[in-house]
């Protein structure tokens, strides 16, 4: 009897802990929507999402976040273009090509990169990379979309690489052996067997890496330049969504239109990362490698 009641106790304790974190997160979400929605009393959803000008403290104010959305999307795309090939290829190298000794050294280093605080990466972008880009490309401003994307790519690579590496590593040896037995070279095996077999894992890794990039705040705040304009070139300064929230929230008068607008930006950002995660979930489910025969 006593053992059973202990068992039940533990059961409900874990349930309570699980519920606690879920309830906490939903309360945060509720709060986000509660504080963000009131802005739409002042401005239509269309004007908010597609308005060209962000002048939140003017009188009358303009709350168009289109340049900010574009900034976020462009920065994420460019960082993806840099981080995806580098991350995936590093993972392929570590899982397939590197000798165990090399992999043993390189892998922890890559994973260590993931634990680099973003403020340090942002600072590096601001102080070192910005003047460097100015000189190399002969551009007026070093704090721009390219700089921020480069820094974000640095942050996304470890995530993408280590998740990809796990996916590639878990491809059954029998598949590779079958490929070798048919006379395929190592390269052919990697390109035609290993990568397709781990595609779902790779896609998930890429999307999770990019969702980290789109939500990242400190780096874009420090290195992106912060101009709320629609970028025309890769070297234009941009002001991604998280940077606006971080830079302005502290100074927006409590419960003012500006304050609500910043929370509404939070909602937009939340929707973005939410979609990314759903997509990752869907892909990992849809392209799951079941058994060895479905390739």
């Amino acid at each position: 009897m006593k053992r059973q009641s202990i068992d039940k106790g533990v059961h409900s304790l874990f349930l309570a802990i699980a519920l606690f974190s879920i309830i906490f997160l939903s309360l945060i979400m509720l709060f986000l929507f509660k504080e963000g929605i009131p802005i739409f009393d002042f401005i239509t959803v269309k004007d908010f999402l597609f308005g060209q000008y962000w002048y939140p403290t003017d009188d009358p104010a303009d709350f168009g976040i289109f340049p900010l959305i574009l900034g976020s999307i462009y920065v994420t795309i460019v960082s993806g273009l840099i981080a995806i090939p580098l991350g995936v290829m590093t993972a392929v190298y570590l899982a397939e090509i590197a000798t165990p000794r090399v992999a043993e050294i390189v892998k922890p280093i890559v994973e260590l990169m993931a634990s680099m605080p973003s403020v340090i990466i942002g600072f590096f972008g601001m102080v070192v990379v910005a003047p460097f880009l100015q000189q190399v490309f002969n551009i007026p401003v070093g704090l721009n979309m390219f700089n921020a994307s480069l820094m974000l790519a640095f942050m996304a690579i470890p995530t993408i690489c280590s998740l990809c590496e796990d996916a590639i590593f878990s491809v059954p040896t029998a598949l590779k052996e079958a490929s070798f037995a048919l006379g395929a070279t190592h390269l052919e095996t990697i390109v035609k067997v290993v990568i397709p077999a781990s595609l779902s894992g790779i896609c998930t890794a890429v999307i999770l890496g990019l969702s980290r990039a789109i939500g990242e705040t400190m780096v874009v705040l420090m290195a992106a330049g912060g101009a709320a304009m629609i970028p025309m070139s890769i070297f234009d300064p941009v002001r991604p969504l998280p940077a606006s929230i971080a830079a302005e929230m502290a100074e927006a008068p409590f419960r003012s239109e500006h304050y609500h607008a910043l929370f509404a930006i939070g909602i937009v950002l939340f929707v973005f990362t939410f979609l990314f995660n759903i997509l990752a979930d869907y892909i990992s489910y849809r392209f799951r490698q079941t058994g060895e025969a479905s390739l």
């Binding site: 601001m126 910005a130 003047p131 007026p140 401003v141 330049g225 912060g226 101009a227 304009m229 830079a247």
Partner: peptide, 22 residues
């Protein structure tokens, strides 16, 4: 809107120091 925005006085000093046309 093309203006770069910086969150502090120190940030402006930093940006002007490193940017020739600033």
């Amino acid at each position: 809107p093309r203006a770069l925005t910086v969150p502090s006085n120190g940030g402006i000093v930093q940006a002007v120091t490193t940017t020739p046309g600033a």
